[in-house]
């Protein structure tokens, strides 16, 4: 078990180190998230009162779209120089590769969200009065579900001809519950409601997180067969 988690950490460390050397993906994700805000402010009147109601949706669309960019890269970068074969030859459980990638993606996506969220709030001139702790819990839980299934499907897509195009098409239908839950929770928090009134959505997301950690964990061996 110790060996397993130390290999997971090694992969997370490797991915983050490679990313922070160039910051190529992080900057692209961040710029894309900002662009989503700008595009949405043109699409909807940013001064209108109704914007407060759709702001949670805009925020999550931004998060998911920019997240897809990072997910796409996480296994495609391993295809260069056939690094994936090196990973597969490593004497560790294949699941360690999966969890390593999930946590590396989770850290990167959360970083982007942490920078983008204040910008969203400022640009739409929104003052948040709810609990920050619950907002962080909601964002982390939703992002985890998105990243857990996203990493798995990215591994699948990276092995096909049309990987970048394929990932959004196969990922978005599967994450529908996370999208609904994340938006409903954020909407409630933004409206100043207490978390207990929307607890059911947190439960949906937690169930989703568990199911889509366990199932990919069981199936990951089948994806990475040489």
């Amino acid at each position: 078990m110790r060996h397993f988690w130390s290999s997971v950490c090694a992969i997370v460390w490797k991915d983050l180190k490679a990313e922070f050397r160039t910051k190529e993906m992080l900057s692209a994700m961040l710029i894309f998230a900002f662009l989503v805000i700008v595009i949405f402010s043109f699409a909807f009147d940013p001064g209108a009162q109704s914007i407060k109601q759709i702001l949670p949706g805009i925020i999550w669309v931004g998060f998911f779209f920019s997240g897809i960019l990072g997910l796409n890269r996480s296994f495609l970068s391993e295809q260069i120089n056939d690094c994936i074969s090196g990973l597969m030859l490593a004497p560790v459980d294949r699941a360690a590769i999966y969890f390593g990638k999930v946590f590396a993606n989770l850290i990167q996506t959360t970083l982007v969200e942490a920078v983008a969220l204040p910008v969203f709030i400022v640009l739409f001139d929104f003052s948040y009065a709810g609990s920050w702790l619950w907002l962080i819990v909601v964002i982390l839980a939703s992002t985890f579900g998105f990243v857990a299934v996203g990493t798995f499907l990215a591994a699948l897509a990276s092995n096909t001809r049309s990987s970048e195009v394929l990932l959004p098409i196969i990922l978005f239908p599967v994450i529908v519950p996370v999208v609904i839950g994340a938006v409903e929770l954020t909407k409630a928090l933004f409206a100043g409601a207490s978390i207990s009134s929307v607890m059911i959505w947190l439960q949906v997301i937690l169930v989703y997180d568990i199911v889509f950690t366990v199932v990919p964990f069981l199936l990951f061996d089948y994806l990475l067969e040489a």
């Binding site: 299934v149 798995f152 499907l153 699948l156 092995n159 096909t160 196969i170 239908p173 599967v174 529908v176 519950p177 609904i180 839950g181 409903e184 059911i200 959505w201 949906v204 169930v207 989703y208 199911v211 889509f212 199932v215 990919p216 199936l219 089948y222 994806l223 067969e225």
Partner: peptide, 28 residues
């Protein structure tokens, strides 16, 4: 072989997702 393997993996993931989708949409 790869096509069959990937499709099977997605066939399982997709089907498991359906009840969660249904419950989520119902509450929504």
């Amino acid at each position: 072989e790869k096509r069959a393997r990937f499709a099977a993996v997605f066939g399982i993931i997709g089907f498991i997702d359906v009840p969660i989708v249904f419950m989520a949409i119902r509450w929504w």
